[in-house]
Design a protein around this nucleic acid. Structure first.
Lengths: 396, 396
DNA sequence: CCACTTACTTTCGTCGCGAAAATATTCACC
DNA sequence: GGTGAATATTTTCGCGACGAAAGTAAGTGG
């Protein structure tokens, strides 16, 4: 099993395209693939043969699913063998490392978390290697590791700057590769989540798509033309301190009236605590607001309006087909959905198309899954980090 | 001269890439090109030979320009023969057609305008053909025609919907091709201006770039990853009625407090007229504001703050390397630049990088030039409209 | 004049593709 | 069952684009 690990790694460009198309858009016949990829029928025979031989694709008998029994020879759908390879995804937080094992389709097959007791790069790498070894024992066909970290990540390998780990230029991918012998991809955690949603989640098949995460901080990712826009994380965090209401609340985590100061979980907790003097959890505040507690309702209502304003502005300038709200703080939508909608409407033309808004409650394992998706993209399918290579045959 | 018209039209993909690279990024040696395009040295000999033979490229002796006299055989820079082919660009407005003749590098070599007396498609096409014939007499090496129209344009050929011409599904490209025998490209006027700036203007070589035009209306265009984002004009104009200040002025051209109602030339003129009862031009209002007239200063100041807010929001969500303000209404920046700056600052994090803002006063000939650039891109270099073709080897 | 360096050209083999013909598999209809 | 049409896939063949490597050109510095 493990012996084949690298056998189908070196895919040609055409094979990659086929593999990705099947992976992302479900079972497809050779003829479908030829049409989608703009290739001839003959090329598809050529490209699919080695993929099937290597075990990455199979001819499914699932023809029964589509009963549209047309004339002629029936098509032979090809599908990815999702279990043929598994991947590890890690999300590193301040005090925990969350790990998942996924299939090629990024379905989670196992979870494994460990507390993070040291921020020293070597110790973190040790812990990741231990976790990987533990999981590798139970899942032998491991093909690669993805790691998501908050902060600036360069070349999908080096943590250029991470405020909460207090890291600068830590070659994390190398450290973990040394210890595990597995190929490792490191990426900004938001970027990883965006890729995961663009390939396998809410943004599948969309051309213009935005992800906004609410949690300890705010995350923002753009997909345009089907590809994630890089560079959104380059600014050292100032970019996301969008000023929503210059007269808004002042909290420790963000400029006065900024989205960070009005929407993030710490900011909301701070506001309620400052007013009541009690320590309360985010969930308690949401429940309080729903139950009519005036203090909680005021803070949550203000957060809802801020979120609506943010969504409207994003819709105005990016015009996405969908906006996904994710993260640990999206419970806000359930309680203050009305305030959000009102604010969206107030900030858009009355006849403008409604903003397709989707909410996805996500925990840390979803972030880890995002990192695994990065590993799938890069290691198996060779969808390389294009931020370094020059522009191709497509204009300036 | 004219006999060669189509002789270098069918460029291979590799030749196109070379031609575009040289056209946009100035004289380059074969070795430079090999590095930039990721090709081997041998390929560059092969690709450049037919381009030089056809007269599209020349070996310049301008080596003297770079006196960095390194060791070894000196490189032989190649440059585009900008005059080898000329292009026509038209901008159609309500009552005028503005025309320009440009070189391959989109330098304007002649201008020619005619009043538009009828909005009937056949008559408009007749007029464009007359103007083209007139210009073709003086510029025999005409290779193509670009036409910029406000409104929705499909397949770079059909005006799907144009409010000011009252057109629906007018196959303008076909009509003009019939009459002139020249290949014709039709595109939304803002899209054309954005392409022109991205290739030859303020956005040359930039990865993320925004164009905002202020005139009779507002225009907005995005360039991300070096390519213009398509689809921004699909919404029938509602999208750009960004609500800036819900309590703002109400004018005939736009929702209350929307950018259109606060920033466009008709809206500003309306506000001053409504208050003073006098008919005044935009320039008079700007002069009045600069001279201290309280009414003009109030309207212009409010417009400046609206513009600053807009710029800040764009900067926040798109994080471009540059924002270009263009159009007939950018005189606002000279008079109200301070108000704009203040509003930008109020809506961004205090430590966020300043927004690189560039202002370009542009008249209708600049719009016509944009259309000519579209013709250059599509007709000569074969940079086809990629909005219809399926996604390439690059993910979903 | 002779190394040495860099730029460019030539030659040759390989690879990926499409076109077209061949083959396979089904349905519709007799 | 047999025949023909429809659709999917495979096979075959030739072409064009590319890179590797060797060869040539044109300078510098001694």
């Amino acid at each position: 099993m493990t012996a084949l690990a690298a056998s189908w790694l070196p895919l040609s460009a055409g094979e990659r395209a086929v593999a990705i198309e099947v992976l992302v858009h479900g079972p497809l016949s050779r003829t479908d693939l030829a049409r989608r990829l703009g290739l001839s029928a003959g090329s598809l025979t050529r490209l699919t043969k080695p993929l099937i031989e290597s075990g990455l694709l199979v001819e499914t008998a699932e023809g029964a699913a589509l009963p549209e029994t047309r004339q002629g020879r029936p098509s032979q759908p090809l599908d990815i063998v999702a279990e043929s390879r598994t991947f590890l995804g890690f999300k590193i937080t301040d005090d925990m490392v969350y790990g998942v094992v996924t299939t090629l389709r990024s379905d989670i097959v196992a979870r494994y978390d460990r507390p993070l007791t040291s921020h020293e790069p070597e110790r973190v790498a040790d812990l990741l290697a231990e976790m990987a070894a533990e999981l590798a024992g139970r899942h032998p066909s491991l093909a690669g590791v993805g790691i998501g970290v908050g902060g600036l990540v360069e070349h999908q390998a080096v943590v250029g700057e991470s405020p909460f780990l207090l890291w600068r230029d830590v070659p994390l991918a190398g450290l973990v590769e040394e210890r595990t012998g597995l190929p490792v991809v490191v990426e900004n955690d938001v970027a990883a989540l965006v890729e995961a949603e663009a390939w396998f989640g809410a943004g599948r098949g969309l051309d213009r798509f935005v992800v906004l995460t609410i949690g300890a901080g705010l995350g923002y990712g753009l997909v345009l033309g089907g590809t994630r826009v890089r560079g959104g994380e380059e600014d050292r965090g100032f970019g996301r301190h969008w000023i929503i209401d210059p007269g808004g609340p002042l909290t420790p985590t963000g400029e006065r009236g900024s989205a960070v100061a009005m929407l993030t979980i710490p900011a909301i907790r701070y506001q309620v605590q400052a007013a009541t003097g009690r320590e309360v959890t985010y969930e308690e505040i949401l429940a309080g607001a729903a139950a009519g507690d005036p203090m909680c309702a005021r803070v949550i209502g203000e957060a809802g309006r801020a979120l609506g304003t943010l969504v409207a502005q994003i819709a105005n300038f990016v015009m996405p087909q969908k906006i996904l709200l994710a993260g640990e703080g999206v419970g806000l939508m359930e309680v203050a959905g009305r305030a959000v909608d009102d604010a969206v409407r107030a900030n858009r033309h009355p006849l403008a198309a409604p903003v397709p808004l989707e909410t996805k409650v996500s925990d840390f394992h979803d972030w880890a899954r995002g990192a695994a998706v990065l590993a799938i993209q890069v290691l198996v399918l060779g969808a390389a980090d294009s931020s370094t290579q020059s522009d191709q045959l497509h204009g300036p």
